[in-house]
Amino acid sequence: MDGLTLFGTWIAAFLTLCILSFLYKDNPFYKFAEYLFIGVSAGFWIAYNFHNLLVPNLIDPLFGADGAFPKLVREGQLDIRLLTVIAGLLGITMLFRFFPKVAWVSRYGIAFSVGLGAGLMFIVYLQANCIYQIWGTVQLSPIVITESATGWHFDWGASVANTLLIIGVVSALVYFYFSKEHKGLLGGTARLGIWFLMVSFGAAFGYTVMARISLLIGRMEFLIDDWIKETLIALGLL
């Protein structure tokens, strides 16, 4: 491990310990790391979006080596890419939010992004999350028969699984139907739907806990292997 990497590891270890110190109580070390994290994250996204969104979609088409403006100056030709100026202007309107007297100008940029986002969401959600999920459910067969060397067999496992899946989706959807009071058959089905949803929430919770635990293990491994062990090696003690 070279000197710069070891220096970085020490900084990373210090910040890791600063954040873990919150387990004791809120303290200046935690606050230092918390504010630094927010600042660094904001800076990260500004730089990341500059290079990945603004450069390829605004700066390069207009001012790049073969951009629309150099072409206009060099060859006197109007280029369709000049329309990209509109995107820049819409973006700049967003900054008017900071000036109360002309804050209304920011509505143009916001309206464009909200309207286009709504259009995108309309198609994406309707197709991927609604139609495909319904399609995935209705094409399940509650009776599954499989072929093997000895002939045709009724597949109990797959049949029960498919039947439960269909019952689960329908009953959970019934639970989300609030236009009629949940009584009688509707109430019973909604009750079954809640049970399916509860198992689903429990599973999601279990997965989340395990994901966080694995992150914690990762941080502990970093402190022991990358920080303490590498420092001891650098000092010639290991």
């Binding site: 959600y125 999920q133 699984a161 989300f176 399916f196 949803l197 198992v199």
Partner: peptide
């Protein structure tokens, strides 16, 4: 995960969409 969670998540996805 494959049966109960899929059923619950599918219903949530359809409702949310």
């Amino acid at each position: 995960m494959n049966i109960f969670n899929t059923a619950g998540q599918r219903a949530i996805l359809i409702g949310a969409s």
